[in-house]
Amino acid sequence: MSIDHNLLVAVSKSVGLFYLIAMAATALVYSCWPANRERFNKAARDIIDDEDAPWQ
C-alpha cells in the first residue's frame, strides 16, 4: 500500500484524536494523583522563601 494523501490525512485525524485523549488523561491523572499532593503543595509554598543563597 502506498502512502497517499488521504491515508496521511486519516492517520492525522485518528492519531491526533487518540493523542488528545491520552494526553489529557495522563496530565489529569498525574496532577490529581494523591501521592503528589504534598509534593505540589510544598513546591508552591517553598518558592515564597528562597532568596538567601543556594543550598550547599
Binding site: 488528545l20 494526553m23 495522563t26 496530565a27 505540589f40 513546591a43 508552591a44 518558592i47 515564597i48
Partner: peptide, 27 residues
C-alpha cells in the same frame, strides 16, 4: 508563576491547575 506568588507572598492558588494548564498549552 514565579513572580506573582512571590510578590503577593501567597503560594499559587492551585499547583495542579498550573500543571494541567502546562500540558494543555504545550499540546
Amino acid at each position: 508563576y514565579y513572580y506573582l506568588p512571590k510578590r503577593a507572598q501567597r503560594p499559587i492558588y492551585s499547583y495542579r491547575m498550573s500543571i494541567v494548564g502546562f500540558w494543555g498549552i504545550t499540546f
